[in-house]
């Protein structure tokens, strides 16, 4: 890393003069770095957004559970009282309450409309539980409920929480894999551009070797130029990418995941690492290509 900074310092300006300016490879490197940085901003935004989503889902659902009591009308109150008694003595339960008719109605409204006569329907009773941070022993609680209140069923949300969190986690992994692939593609494109520049400057390299230039000196001239192009291209692409993310719709509950694709708070700092990373990739790719090619010239 120190070599990279030394090379980029102003003293290197004289060194890369020995290499003639090459318009085609310069434009190709700038464009590639800019395009890849633009894509990297979106991959980063996707990865961070899915990470936030997974955390939110996990947090929201991890500490909550529901007990549903389905029993004949004459037994339901007794079983409800038994369940409450069990919950009172169960470790890991922070609070619990029976959902009232208004809350039941609110839950059913989306499916049956607002005129549903809740009072006249044989609905099960629902008890909402909030666990402590340490959590309750779900299997132990099920066994006790089966004994004390046979009509009670514990739903700790695991069944549908796990695939949601897993899906969000996979999306986050996909975003990170995309970032790695973007980095690799950038390295590949810059290597090709550097090799084209080196091949086009065979005479320059021969003359430099003839007058006693070391491989490091010659490589430095090419590497500095490509590193700076990678850096400037990535700066432009990152700036454009961040602007594009900034004008995406704001996150809201109605939009859900799609409107939450963006950066929040300190996450806006993450894209700033893309330009130096692109410069590092350009440095490593060009240096490897230059030293490999120079070995062919005695």
């Amino acid at each position: 890393m120190r070599r990279l900074f030394d090379m980029l310092r102003s003293e290197g300006r004289g060194v890369d003069r020995v290499v003639p300016p090459t318009g085609f490879t310069a434009r190709l490197t700038l464009l590639t770095a800019a395009a890849m940085a633009f894509l990297a901003v979106f991959a980063l935004a996707l990865s961070l957004a899915t990470g936030r989503l997974a955390d939110r889902w996990a947090d929201a659902l991890a500490r909550s559970a529901t007990i549903r009591i389905s029993a004949p009308a004459d037994q339901i109150e007794a079983q409800a009282a038994a369940v409450l008694a069990v919950l009172e003595t169960t470790p890991g339960i922070e609070s619990f309450r029976i959902l009232d008719d208004a809350e039941m109605k609110a839950l059913l409204d989306p499916w049956f409309g607002p005129d549903l006569p809740v009072e006249s329907l044989p609905l099960p009773k629902l008890i909402e539980i909030v666990e402590t941070v340490a959590g309750a022993d779900a299997e132990g609680l099920r066994l006790r409920l089966a004994t004390e209140a046979p009509g009670a069923v514990l739903d700790d949300h695991t069944r549908w929480r796990r695939p949601l969190v897993e899906a969000a986690g996979r999306l986050r992994t996909l975003g990170l894999v995309s970032l790695v692939l973007i980095g690799a593609a950038t390295a590949g494109m810059i290597t090709l551009a550097a090799q084209a520049a080196l091949a086009a400057n065979g005479q320059v390299i021969r003359v430099l070797r003839l007058v006693g230039a070391r491989d490091q000196f010659i490589a430095r001239a090419f590497v500095r130029r490509f590193t700076l192009r990678g850096l400037w291209g990535a700066l432009g692409g990152t700036a454009l990418g961040m602007m594009a993310v900034a004008v995406l719709p704001e996150a809201d509950d109605a939009g859900g995941f799609l409107t939450g694709l963006g950066f929040t708070g300190a996450h806006w700092l993450w894209p700033l690492i893309i330009p130096p990373l692109a410069a590092l990739v350009a440095y490593a790719a060009t240096r490897a290509a230059a030293l490999r090619m120079l070995k062919e010239v005695r």
């Binding site: 003839l210 007058v211 006693g212 230039a213 070391r214 491989d215 490091q216 120079l294 070995k295």
Partner: peptide
Amino acid sequence: TRDDVAAMRQ
């Protein structure tokens, strides 16, 4: 080495 050759050519 290649660096030796470069130094010698100077």
